[in-house]
Simulated scan of single mutants.
Amino acid sequence: MRVLVWQWGRRGAGPRMAAELAAALRALPGHTVFLSLSNRAEILAASDAPACALPVATYAGAAGYAWRLLLAPVSIPWLVRRLRALAPDVAICAMPGPLDLPMALALRRLRIPMVVTVHDAELHPGDGLPLQMALQRALIRRAAALVALTGHVAARLRQQPAARGRPLLEARLPPLVFQASRPPPPLSHDGPMRLLCFGRLLPYKGLDLFEAALRGLEAAGLGRGRLEVRVVGEGPHTPTLDALARLPGVQVENRWVPEDEVGRLVAWADTVVLPYREASQSGVAAIALAAGRWVVATRVGGLVEQFRGEAMALLCEPDAGSIGACLARLLDDPPALPAMAPDPLGLWLEMARSLSRQIELLLPGVTHERPRAQDAARSDPAPV
């Protein structure tokens, strides 16, 4: 089966997820896999940059996005030519983005079925871009099938008119590796336990709950000198961030974390804290598990499914008292480290094998030979 995997985000977990999925599918017998990323994707500047068969020029900022939309009449024929040269049997969108509709239209013109991986069925409070959900629904309506990474997301998709009648394929987000080698285990250093709250600093991430939990630990005499805390990510400046920064032993870094720093940041931590009020699933959790970090997370959305069977995860309720009690328990009696580290590569292969099998059962025609164009796809970025 010939598969195209695409994700045109410039930064964040999306491009890495696409690269990992493409690599895992490529490792399966009988699969030829092509990867399409934004030519601005941070992962392409990394020392271990993946092979990208179809780099696509995207945009930076609202003005750039508007310009790319104006270029859509030019970009669709360009994509048709490139796709005809690659001749995929099926295309997989690893994570929807604002510029995916031209790709969907080009695929439709060539009658290539499209499978869309939906990470969020609805926007989280304070999250997303204008028209993001409208664009996602338009993409879903053109899909031959959808992939949901948790049952939580699948259940919400089934309630949406755009997704009704679309087959829903099962998958689970494997650990995301951001380090060349696995870091030393937690508490290998001398000093207090290190907590990391990492990701976009938005209201639904429960930073206010985390601040209240830390304040409670401090009042009980459990925080000072026993915890070192970093809150790192990008988001609007809020009173909650100010309150966190005033707590002893807490450092707030409101900034974007580039691709090549993520591995070092997570390796610094002993525990990654996800005090979320709601969640579909978590890319940060996938990074933490790959690095062998303890995770303290709330029982919301798809997190319960994502952490099922994970010995390194401690779950609590989405309130300050429960989060604080979970952190206190971690301080006094941290879970034993598993005898064997998880095998991210093996889990990605398992996911790819399952997804490929489901696609072949749903779309048996994709395994048939299609006429191949004689010319190879050019490597210059598409005008999308």
Rank of each mutant, 00 (worst) to 15 (best):
H119D: 06
D319W: 05
A51D: 10
L35Q: 01
P50D: 03
A285V: 03
A45F: 04
V266A: 00
C93P: 01
A213D: 02
L201R: 02
A66K: 07
L227R: 10
V366Q: 06
R370L: 13
S38R: 03
A163C: 08
S75C: 15
R194W: 02
W6N: 12
P125F: 10
R172P: 01
M340P: 00
V33P: 01
A94Q: 09
A143P: 00
A134I: 13
V273W: 02
R10D: 15
P236R: 14
A243N: 14
A22C: 04
P383F: 12
C316F: 03
Q251F: 05
A180K: 08
V273N: 04
A311N: 07
P383S: 13
R329K: 15
A53M: 05
G206E: 05
R224M: 08
V177L: 07
L202D: 01
A155P: 03
L83K: 08
A180F: 03
L349C: 02
L202Q: 14
K205D: 03
P248I: 10
G191R: 04
E42H: 11
R255K: 15
P183K: 09
A212S: 10
L37R: 04
V74C: 14
D100I: 02
C93D: 09
G12V: 05
F307L: 15
A41P: 05
V366D: 06
R82W: 00
D120C: 09
E369L: 14
L289Y: 07
Q160I: 12
L99M: 15
E170Y: 03
L201F: 10
A376L: 13
P185W: 09
A94T: 11
H31G: 02
H152R: 00
